[in-house]
Design a protein around this nucleic acid. Structure first.
Lengths: 352, 352
DNA sequence: CTGAAAGCGCTTACAG
DNA sequence: CTGAAAGCGCTTACAG
């Protein structure tokens, strides 16, 4: 595969009739090169399709690349923990390239925390950013700031296609919604009613959840769904309230045969079903967080749709690394596989 | 994360009161070191938990590592092509470490071709082996040979736990079988009959397929299955024959509502169903090869169980690389996730 | 604007 | 058995 004789910087220098210093300056666009020499070197570079020896470069270079990772704070076992772990893994794998990664956390239920975090970042020392895209507007304005400074950034979790992010890494939420529907309708008829649970919180509903709902609805339409969808709003921290609501709705609408929840909190409904000892409701949710895994194992959650959070974190850092260090062109859209996890296969999904 | 001041080989030398050459010799066990110096250096090495700078090492080193990949020859779009691509990808990622990978192909339907291939390998120049474990006995004897020469090897596709492979990379076939059953029984009742198709060939049936059948049967038992399984033997290259057999069995047993095939050839049955215009049979198979993907899209295959072949190839080379170059300790069992692919999500599964 | 030289941390002959 | 020295391909001050 690899040619035995790679072309080196001294070879380029010789061919262009200049010194290695000059070649280095044009390669890195450091200026201080005469126009004549610049084009001369450039020509040779193109001609021989010069590819720098990254190993030598990183050994010689003292430059440290600062990557800032901005994600929500998480409790152990939560979704964002896995993204964070993927980041750590990448840092380990690419430490040879002098990466320094700083993680900054905000409160995912508090937009102001995100805002003040962004305000405090000293962008002068930042070479790249990995960004969890929970708050649409703030992400957009911050992106413009990064654009202005030509700092590359990648989005994880969900995409905002309008922005000039170097890449998005995550799954297609619309399809994620379709798949949830598809799985449910293996177990129920198209006349059955469906419960959709949401979590009330102060901020706007996540783009992610909205898109999933759209996908879900699209599927319903495509199969000419005859039943009803009922929506309930649950509270993350008030189980008594939740149980009352759920008792009421199930009692009122006994034809509800399935439930879906478009974020990682399926366990709230799942635990209710477990306590009420109801295995007749097919529940589908998202993300293999620990509480969900437990209920999947016990059969109260039918399936979880997973977004490979570890890989999101890993690839995010990897792409930034490739961009910063190899100056490579990077595909700007890396849709990850959407995994369907059931009782039998979820245990294997930790790999990588 | 990473200490600014990594300890270098000159630091070790100084601490042990020897030269860098001596330190290098003990690190690499090259001999030519007095016992006194050896222990002295070793002690320091332990004490400071020396971790070599791999970048510097690979820049300085002229050693090329030869890895041999022994897999079946494949037609475009087949399972092993993806394993092969994963290998290529790894070679690209790790080229900086002077990898040279040679791929050797045998005929997966002809044990003798594997045997003669093994006989012709000149192991003197081989540093590591990646091995597709199709032929049980030959793999075992070859493994012993590699053991004797202390050449590390990894298995892909299916495991042979008794052997001393450095690692196995692939999925748990037993669970793979359970999952197939689980998916089918979403669509059929436990009274329905099931068709199991096999492909006749000269060699023994693959371990993989046997294990999947066991897992499948275990699931049947667990749900107290009441129906019948009918087995047919199909021929890869004789469609007329296959159609006759399939026509006959479906006619004779109209209660067959599902079909399963424990290798990547589900498309043979799938195409039959398509030609006969039968969407009432739930078909589940393995591996996202092109022909299967097409039928999944069209709805004649219900689901495919995937083994991440690309990742198998990639991780195989990566682990060998880490073992050879970093001398690292490697976990010897890397069970990969078992992916459930349906019409909606299979398109995203190419990533990585 | 330009080039010669030192240095990154390791390996590799080569004297002794 | 041991150490001093050159070299891997690049970057980084530093004179000019």
């Amino acid at each position: 595969m690899s040619n035995c004789k790679e072309i080196r910087i001294v070879d380029i220098a010789k061919m262009a009739g200049v010194s290695v210093g000059t070649v280095d300056r044009v390669i890195h666009n450091r200026g201080r090169v005469s126009a004549a020499n610049y084009t001369r070197v450039m020509t040779v570079l193109k001609e021989v399709d010069y590819r720098p020896n990254m190993v030598a470069r990183s050994l010689a270079s003292k430059k440290v690349y600062h990557i800032v990772v901005i994600i929500p704070a998480y409790a152990p076992g939560e979704y964002w923990e896995y993204i964070s772990r993927g980041v750590d893994r990448a840092v380990e794998d690419f430490r040879q390239y002098h990466l320094s990664v700083t993680k900054l956390y905000f409160d995912q239920f508090n937009e102001a925390s995100f805002e003040s975090l962004l305000r405090d970042i000293k962008l002068d020392e930042v070479d790249g950013v990995l960004l969890g895209t929970l708050f649409y507007d703030l992400v957009c304005s911050f992106s413009k700031e990064l654009d202005a400074r030509k700092i590359p950034y990648v989005y994880v979790d969900s995409d905002i296609p309008g922005e000039r992010r170097m890449a998005f890494i995550g799954t297609d939420s619309l399809v994620g919604g379709q798949i949830a529907a598809r799985i449910l309708f293996r177990n129920i008829t198209k006349e059955a009613d469906i419960l959709m649970a949401r979590i009330v919180h102060t901020g706007a509903e996540s783009t992610q959840a909205k898109n999933r709902l759209s996908g879900f609805n699209a599927y319903l339409t495509s199969i000419d769904y005859k039943g009803c969808m009922y929506r309930v709003d649950l509270d993350l921290s008030d189980d008594r309230h939740n149980y009352e609501i759920l008792d009421a709705i199930f009692h009122e609408h006994p034809n509800i045969k399935a439930a879906v929840i478009f974020n990682s909190k399926a366990y709230i409904v799942g635990e209710y079903l477990k306590n009420r000892n109801r295995k007749d409701i097919s529940l589908v949710g998202y993300d293999l967080i620990e509480k969900n895994a437990q209920l999947l194992e016990e059969g109260y959650i039918e399936a979880l749709i997973d977004q490979r959070p570890r890989m999101q974190g890993y690839m995010g850092v990897k792409l930034l690394c490739e961009r910063l260090i190899l100056n490579g062109e990077i595909g700007n859209n890396n849709l990850l596989p959407i995994d369907i996890l059931i009782k039998e296969n979820y245990k294997f999904s930790e790999t990588y």
